[in-house]
Simulated assay, not measured.
Amino acid sequence: MLRLGTRRSALATTQSSWVADRLRALGHDVELVEVTTEGDRDRTTPLARLGGTGVFVSALRAALAEGRVDLAVHSLKDLPTAPDESTTVAAVPTREDPRDALVARDGLTLGELPAGATVGTGSPRRRAQLEALGLGLVVTPLRGNVDTRLRQVSQGRLDAVVLAAAGLRRLGRIDEATELLDPLQMLPAPGQGALAVEVRAGDAATAAAVAALDDADTRACTTAERVLLAELEAGCSAPVGALAEVVEGLESPELSLRAVVTTPDGTADLRRSLVGDPGDPGALGRRLARLLLDDGAADLMTGAEPPAASPTDPTTPLPTTDPIATEHAP
């Protein structure tokens, strides 16, 4: 019997059940074990003050290390980039939609919200990118599970909220999104839309069972994004967005990575992109991070505007169209 640790929220349980069902289909017996995290107990303090979204991870890792569970499922964007000696990520399954979703009153899109409209989010990255758009929106701190956040709109307390499209899809509520935000407009968090299945370090039997769920392309893309985040020395609550995709090159598949670093208030941002080898995603993440740092990313993250970049910077221009950004919810 494999004991799978999960948070109690509807989304966490849905994600864990998805993994459990796939393990059962491979012939394994799986039992869900509920684990309460600090982020679940304290639903009012901003996540940045609690230590970022990593507060959802520590209790699950402790349950693994203590032998109370055999594996745990995390939203990969919540997983700290620093290695944990007691656990290992045995699988990164196929990624769900990585985009951010807008849920607004009256079916409005982001561009249709009037100046002064209130938009809720608990993410510094989303806040900064919304402010950078210059739409005159009032971005309001917001925490809580998906139901709690959506009720802020349905009950008229907020004009809109922004949350991960993947969560809405997994909960069967994607039709409530009034717009799926183009990554050219708002880059997602590194790892957004992907899951991480962790096992206890040294547990070769469970690692082997879980490894069958790993998706090579998803692992390559999310590795590039997370290495970039680590090289920037930015936590999962930093105003950093990144998205990697495996694309067709002239001779073989390539890994395309783009990223944005903003000031916390969104008054300045820095966008860069590079292409590399899917077989070495970490190298691509490090290269792009170095490029961003050379161009002043560290100053941006602390709120200072960096010097203007040279027009000869060896960056790959951002595309004018985006193959994953063409779908919009009804």
Rank of each mutant, 00 (worst) to 15 (best):
G276L: 07
R200W: 06
V197K: 13
D21C: 01
G193W: 02
R99N: 12
L163A: 03
V240Q: 02
V138M: 09
E176T: 10
L163S: 04
L257C: 00
K77F: 11
G303H: 04
V199C: 14
G111K: 05
L137K: 09
R125H: 12
R200L: 14
T263W: 10
L137Y: 07
R43A: 15
L108V: 11
E225G: 06
E112R: 14
A224Q: 00
A72S: 12
D294C: 00
T222W: 01
A220R: 06
E254G: 11
L137M: 09
G116H: 02
Q155R: 08
A309M: 11
L228W: 03
G54H: 08
T223G: 00
P114R: 15
L181W: 03
S256V: 12
G193T: 11
A128H: 01
A91I: 00
L64K: 07
E251N: 08
L284G: 02
A308R: 07
G51L: 13
M186A: 14
R127K: 14
G111I: 03
P307D: 15
G120P: 09
T222E: 03
R126D: 13
A165G: 01
P319R: 02
T320G: 08
R43L: 13
H328Q: 15
R169K: 09
V89G: 00
R3T: 15
L26V: 01
E34Y: 01
P323Y: 14
D78A: 12
G67V: 13
L137S: 10
V119K: 13
A329H: 08
A160H: 04
P46A: 07
P80W: 10
A308C: 01
G167A: 13
A48E: 09
G285A: 13
T262G: 12
A65E: 10
L163C: 06
G172Q: 12
C221R: 11
D280S: 15
L293D: 01
D40W: 07
A82F: 10
G241D: 04
T321D: 04
T36P: 01
V275A: 09
D203Y: 00
A82Q: 15
V210Y: 05
D294H: 01
G303N: 02
E176L: 15
R200T: 14
E85F: 05
D294K: 00
A101P: 12
R43E: 11
A25S: 15
D106A: 14
S16N: 06
G241Y: 02
G167V: 02
G54N: 08
V199D: 09
V162Y: 03
V197C: 11
S273W: 02
F56A: 09
R95C: 11
N145P: 11
V19E: 04
T302Y: 04
